[in-house]
Every structure is written in structure tokens, then in C-alpha cells.
Amino acid sequence: MSDININFQNIKDSDGLNKEDFYVKFKERLDDVTSFPADYTYKFIYPTSEETMGKVKEIFKNANPKFDYKASKNRKYTSITVVIYALDSDQVINFYQEVSQIPGVMML
């Protein structure tokens, strides 16, 4: 499982990378610390919504995912953890890019 922790909220890091450059750098980091194929864990937070949950699940449906959910104390937000057996860093990044298209989802 990967130990990379990158905040995707503002796809600019301290180096001022744009979105495309960010993913290039992220791919390099993934390849440096992970021997693929390997289990990979995604973590997302979103305003509680069955529709949003369904969209996230749909993205991962063909990757044999394992899901874990946790509602915030006031149930305003839900966190979802998705574990897949990733074949390579490109697959990991493609899933992040797909999920980034869902409004309100914060990627951790």
C-alpha cells in the first residue's frame, strides 16, 4: 500500500505546478515508492449524498474495489476509502482524474 500523502484540493504545490505538471510529478513519486502491481488506497471526503457516493463507486466498478465509509459526527460529510489492486501508476492517476470531475469531492 502506498504511503504517498498529497493534497489534491489545490492542484498547485509549493513549486507552482499546474494540473498537468502536478500529475507528472505525482506519477514520478508513485513510481519511486510503489512497486506495481500493488494495493492502492484512495481517500475522499464529500458532502453526504447518495448521488455523489454512486458516482464515486461507478468510477471504480471495474477495478474490484473494496469500499469503507464513515459519516462525520453531524452526518454532513462522508469519507470513503477505496482500495484497489492497481496495475501501475497510470491507473492510479486516471482514477484520481476521473473522481476530480465530481463536484464537491475532496481528494486526500
Rank of each mutant, 00 (worst) to 15 (best):
F67I: 00
S35Q: 12
M1H: 12
D21G: 10
K12I: 02
I4V: 15
Q97K: 15
I93H: 12
I102E: 11
K25Q: 15
A71K: 08
K25C: 09
K27Q: 15
I6P: 00
K27D: 13
F67S: 09
N94Y: 14
S49H: 01
Y85V: 01
D32F: 05
D21W: 13
E51Y: 11
F95W: 09
T34C: 06
I4R: 05
P47V: 00
D13E: 03
R29Y: 03
L87I: 12
S35G: 13
A63D: 15
T81P: 13
T52V: 10
R29M: 01
D68L: 08
F44V: 01
L108Y: 07
D39M: 10
D32P: 01
E20N: 08
K61M: 04
S2C: 04
Y40I: 02
F67A: 01
V83W: 03
E20H: 09
M1R: 10
E98G: 10
F95Q: 05
V83C: 04
Q91V: 04
I45E: 03
K61D: 07
Y42G: 05
S89N: 12
N94D: 15
P37T: 03
K25R: 14
K73A: 11
S89Q: 08
Y69I: 00
D3G: 13
Q91P: 08
V105L: 03
Y85G: 00
F67V: 01
I59G: 03
Y40T: 01
Y96A: 02
M53I: 04
Y40M: 00
T34I: 13
M53R: 14
P47Y: 07
I102Y: 07
M53N: 08
N64E: 06
S79E: 10
V33C: 01
R75Q: 13
N5R: 15
M1Q: 07
I102T: 00
Y69P: 00
I45L: 11
G104R: 12
V83F: 02
E50D: 14
K73R: 05
A63T: 15
Y69C: 00
I45N: 08
K43G: 09
D15Q: 11
F22Q: 02
L108W: 02
L87V: 07
F95V: 13
F60V: 09
Y85T: 04
F60W: 06
F60I: 07
P37A: 00
N94A: 15
I84R: 13
K76Y: 04
S72A: 08
K55Q: 12
Y69Q: 10
S2V: 07
Y69N: 12
Y40V: 06
D90H: 14
I45Q: 12
M107E: 12
V83T: 11
